[in-house]
Write a protein that binds this DNA or RNA. Structure first.
Lengths: 240, 240
DNA sequence: AAAATAGAAAATATCCAATTTTAAAATGGA
DNA sequence: TCCATTTTAAAATTGGATATTTTCTATTTT
């Protein structure tokens, strides 16, 4: 589904630019520049930025305008643990009430992911953002039967946060090959075997490894401007 | 800390009105009416409403404006379970890294809560919103040493959501007496004894009971307008 | 030279008026 | 009663104007 309103479209674009690291942690988001870059009015921009504040991707201190939320190892650790908690819990619930539809979604998502992983693995030059999209869909499918909107909601937020760190890591280091492919395969097997314990163990390890991609570099250096305060504010909902 | 900007102030006021049930589930939030009621411009209003969308208190479907998010038993169940998950997890973590400061916050918060509970218990007419504030502070203190900003963040969202249901229940039924007082006492004891298992068990029960106040009435009747679709969208950060 | 201060320039937060789009309601026949 | 059309009420956006607040820079003071 494509955005029905301008605000939503711009929201998606800025969000994407932050997630991809085009807008770097700490960057000041001057309304005037944004106006030109995204071709929308100040008011529309402010509205979209407010939403991003809620997602924990943008900060809005007092009267000092908007900035891209800074990164830190502590924040990454927090996000990683939180994502593990939520994703494992949701995966467990999903397995409990797993039905054929769920299985079908999981297998389908895995297939897509697997195919593109194969392509990229043989030729790293062909890395595509599609990989990230399919990866998200696979993880999404796994927990799609958990039955809790809020859980999916929060998980989505954490997923995006961790994605940002991962993408930042790829800016300085090569995309890791092979390993995550095998992990995904194991995760799929555990899911289809309805082995909740094994599944959560695998997911935990998988998520940890993903985070390490970032930790390995010390990416917590100069970012945009000064204070690299704590993370977000208030935030909410998942994508329809 | 008082709001530094108009938007923040209005945000707080609308938020409060929704939590208190002054703005009822399903209510249409016409910008024009809001403009008068809260004395702010359309743009400012849109900005604050966007934030509330993130909190899962306001919905913003397509091009049909804003509405107060409807309530439903399914949603309440979801919220309740989610709050239990987060609050118990956070309480456990808190106990793990509990120090004297934490203990002091817990005891202090309990004291305030206890005092006002006593007053209200002897004279129900004197029910005060302060009780809710102190109750929040007590629960907040319990998990304040968990060390995870995101966890506190998400918990805050769930707490507010459950508070809304509770307040809606009080509109039709009397404030329950005595029981929760005893529960709080037990919770305090378990916390000070560093008994994580007992504490989480008590918290779970306590939260369940709180939710039942609402379930007991069938409060899921006509609310504002038509479709009472699913809950929220995206959401994010905690209060500073 | 470090610290404090005054003033200028830049950027925010807000508001208002006007336009374009959309959705919901009303109307008028088949 | 059920469509199709017109009307009407709102919402989404824009552009511009205005106070206020920050931030920067040059000037003084200690």
């Amino acid at each position: 589904m494509r955005p029905t309103t301008l605000t939503e479209a711009v929201y998606g674009r800025i969000r994407n630019d932050i997630l991809l690291g085009l807008l770097k942690p700490g960057d000041k988001l001057k309304l005037e520049s944004l106006r030109q870059r995204y071709d929308a009015s100040i008011n529309t921009l402010r509205e979209t930025l407010s939403r991003l504040v809620a997602d924990g991707l943008v900060a809005n201190e007092g009267q000092r305008g908007f900035t891209v939320v800074p990164t830190s190892l502590a924040d990454l650790r927090d996000i990683t643990e939180m994502r593990q908690l939520l994703e494992c819990h949701a995966a467990r619930l999903s397995i409990q009430s797993a039905d054929l539809d769920w299985e079908s979604r999981v297998v389908g998502a895995y297939h897509k992911l697997s195919k593109i992983e194969q392509v990229i693995d043989t030729d790293p030059k062909r890395y595509s953002p599609l990989l990230e999209a399919y990866n998200r869909q696979f993880h999404g499918a796994l927990i799609s039967a958990c039955g809790s909107r809020w859980l999916l909601n929060f998980h989505g937020v954490m997923y995006d946060q961790s994605l940002r760190y991962r993408m930042l890591a790829f800016q300085v280091r090569d995309f890791p090959r092979d390993q995550s492919r095998r992990e995904h395969r194991e995760i799929l097997d555990a899911a289809l075997a309805r082995d909740a314990d094994r599944l959560t163990a695998l997911l935990t390890a998988h998520i940890t490894k993903g985070a390490e991609l970032y930790v390995e570099q010390d990416l917590t250096r100069a970012q945009g401007t000064k204070r690299r305060g704590p993370p977000p504010r208030r935030h909410a909902g998942p994508r329809k």
